[in-house]
């Protein structure tokens, strides 16, 4: 299945949970979604993340400008040890891409602390009537569930209601940023735990540099393998 169909598939339900992504895969896929929805289609998109969004921003600028993401990252974080480099950026392309993001309807909020999620969610639900987002991506559900004692049934029912009223699509991303072996074990557990709540739970795994394989949960043991092309 091609990339567009996968993204369409992800957006087919009001709420989708995408489970089991290592960091690189999560960043790639969320950036794809942000690029498609906010930059290409001009939709109002809100990305709430419990991780630093600099990687997403670097990839997004890279997609828009066609400049290399690792070079962009060095300009976003010039005080990192890896920042010293003789290769200079094309300043006009770089700035033009940033200005394109400024003109878009993309909004990102970094939350430092998952424990305030319940308070944050109520505030967010109050604002949604006015904001009427087309797409909201929430990264990472596993941290929210672990640290906020959030009632997942209540949250999903509230978001479903918001989705029906304002046609907003919600995507949760879950996963851990650990070594490969630990990641697989915990993620598979997360995935089975979450799929009882929703029909649209998608498991992504086996991220390699050249491909991103997507396995739908209902096809987990059948041949449900899809590929996303490399975004780096």
């Amino acid at each position: 299945m091609d990339r567009d169909k996968i993204i369409k598939n992800i957006l087919s339900e009001n709420i989708t949970i995408i489970a089991s992504l290592p960091l690189g895969g999560r960043v790639s896929l969320t950036t794809e979604l942000l690029y498609d929805y906010a930059i290409q289609k001009g939709k109002k998109t809100f990305f709430i993340t419990l991780e630093k969004s600099t990687y997403n921003l670097a990839l997004l600028i890279s997609k828009i400008s066609k400049l290399k993401a690792d070079l962009i990252f060095k300009y976003l974080e010039p005080c990192l040890i890896s920042s010293k480099d003789d290769i200079k950026i094309d300043r006009d392309k770089y700035i033009a891409a940033i200005e394109k993001i400024r003109r878009s309807n993309l909004y990102i909020e970094e939350l430092d602390d998952a424990s305030i999620w319940n308070w944050y969610l109520d505030r967010f639900l109050e604002s949604i009537e006015e904001e009427k987002y087309d797409l909201v991506i929430i990264n990472r559900l596993d941290m929210i569930l672990e640290k906020s004692k959030c009632n997942i049934n209540r949250m999903l029912s509230k978001l479903n209601e918001a989705s029906r009223n304002y046609k907003t699509k919600f995507i949760f991303i879950t996963g851990v940023n650990k070594q490969h072996d630990e990641f697989e074990l915990k993620d598979i557990k997360n995935y089975y735990k979450l799929k009882k709540y929703l029909k649209n739970v998608i498991l992504l795994q086996k991220i390699t540099k050249s491909e991103l394989e997507v396995i739908n949960y209902w096809n987990l043991y059948e041949v449900g393998r899809f590929k996303l092309k490399e975004v780096n």
């Binding site: 990305f47 969004s53 921003l57 976003l76 700035i95 940033i98 993001i101 400024r102 909004y107 990102i108």
Partner: peptide, 8 residues
């Protein structure tokens, strides 16, 4: 505004 182009 250039470091955080995604803020309101």
């Amino acid at each position: 505004k250039y470091e955080y182009p995604y803020l309101g």
